[in-house]
Write a protein that binds this DNA or RNA. Sequence first.
RNA 1: CGGGGUGUAGCUCAGUCUGGUAGAGCGCCACGUUCGGGACGUGGAGGUCGUAGGUUCAAAUCCUGUCUCCCCGACCA
Length: 568
Amino acid sequence: MKTSQILISTLREAPADAEIASHQLMLRAGMVRQLASGIYTWLPLGLRVLRKVENIVREEMDRAGAQEIMMSAIQPAELWQESGRWDHYGPELLRISDRHNREFCFGPTHEEIITDLVRREIRSYKQLPANFYQIQTKFRDEVRPRFGIMRAREFLMKDAYSFHLNDESLQETYEQMFQTYSNIFTRVGLNFRAVIADSGNIGGNKSHEFHVLADSGEDLIVFSDHGNYAANMEQAVAVKPEQARPDAIKSMETVATPDQHSIEKVSQFLNVGTDQCLKTLIVKSEEDGLVALVLRGDHELNEIKAEKLDGVMSPLTFADDIEIKSSIGCGVGSIGPIGLSIPIYVDHSAANVSDFVCGANSDGQHLTGVNWERDLPLPTTVDIRNVCAGDMAEDGSGKLEFARGIEVGHIFQLGTKYSASMKANCLDEQGKAVTLTMGCYGIGVSRVIAAAIEQNNDDKGIIWPTAIAPFQLALVPINMHKSVRLREAVMKFYDELKAAGIDVILDDRKERPGVMFADMELIGIPHRFVFSEKGLDAGEIEYKARTDTDNQNISLDTAIQFLKDRLS
RNA sequence: CGGGGUGUAGCUCAGUCUGGUAGAGCGCCACGUUCGGGACGUGGAGGUCGUAGGUUCAAAUCCUGUCUCCCCGACCA
């Protein structure tokens, strides 16, 4: 390909509304253009990258025995009503109606469609297990799209759905997909980590997310400093303290704490550590009542864990001041677990504190020297806090560290959530109808590209991993328009490169060298040959990798082999 | 959905407070001089100032409505 044949639309300055590196660079390098909030046009260069990622995904999915299909982007409401998600998915589902006023949606995901297909087509256990995938445009009407294609409303996704007779078979395919995802992200050239995850809105049991590690990542992930344990913050288990609760020493006293409503203020006022104070949060229950959650003062509530507790309203909803005042009789800053007439859950760590400080359920008063099982009974203890750096990993393999990640893949064991509600059955060996067990596996194909840039860029622009670069090699001639001799040599070399199967872009624009260098670096081409008349005389060509600081001269005769070695 | 911004040329922005016939840099086109790290000169093209209405002799500028886009939060693969 020559630059004269492809739209090179680079910008010197980043558009003002782009914040993060990948968004700015994709705009500056002419990969995408925004059409509306969260909706983008892919320009030729960007599309080449997208196709390369797509092809890696396709090859690895095919290798794993998955079958590619293509489902419609537009989906009829009936199937969503059947699964129950028409009412539950919310405004993120873009609903539309046709000329007959029949309701449809633009698919944000395809569980309903594939389940409908499979229940019609698959009759016998002999056809199982089966794994179907597609690479296709999804639409999710995000509340707040941001960061360019990182969190777009319309985006390209690879989604796969597997069907099984039993959990063992699902487990087998799940593990195979886990390996396939690892292969894909390794081939793309990303530094990634698989983490234990919450299964969220899609539903189901076991689930892993694949995160590309980058400081700009939206997700907080935790991992063991020794060993393999890694989890999403939402999901990371805070292990029970190992040592027993210390013996009670102090006696319980009521102290006046006027206007001290936060843990920080109370701890300073009474001169005790925040880890000696317990905070009591009041949330709504499923039956229109209230539930108390008790945590150590230095810990944060994990809302995902809390809303899974029996009796707690999901999504988690905090009680407002009025409800608290009328039910407990004091303000938010003075609540404590003693004498509460509502259900109480205590975090494991909070249950392990003795001689603690807590609210007295009376404005302006706190209790000190309080002890479980002496001053009040110890209610059910649970894990409802976020883990902290330095906590022991759940598997005991080491201490937890934090990192930021960009979620590029997610695999779930769905179980029978969709197959049961949509009656997807098949006959087993005994001729008995069995509800199919499902798994589903997603990759944000377009997001992978943003993540790759976040992880690989410098002040000059993008540095593509070779596997997904729009071109592997930039061939930059110096003043080719002034020398027929050079032009002929460059064209011959260009043809040889193409014949050798190298994905090369020849910059045949009549530009000064600095402009061509700057553009090729901004666009992120990982390898560069510079061809000049001087080099032609010496029988040499100049090579520089995008990440190199210096050039090196290579004999023209061996240049192609030299590059091939670099690419392998 | 709450809070805060924003909208003037392809991009970055000035002009708005204090109303008086639309500006700069970069980019683009032509010609010339240049030619190994985003050259220089001369000339040129390009904007119903988001949009609708109002005030005024006169509106990018003041007033009202509305839309867009961005940021923070809540939410979310």
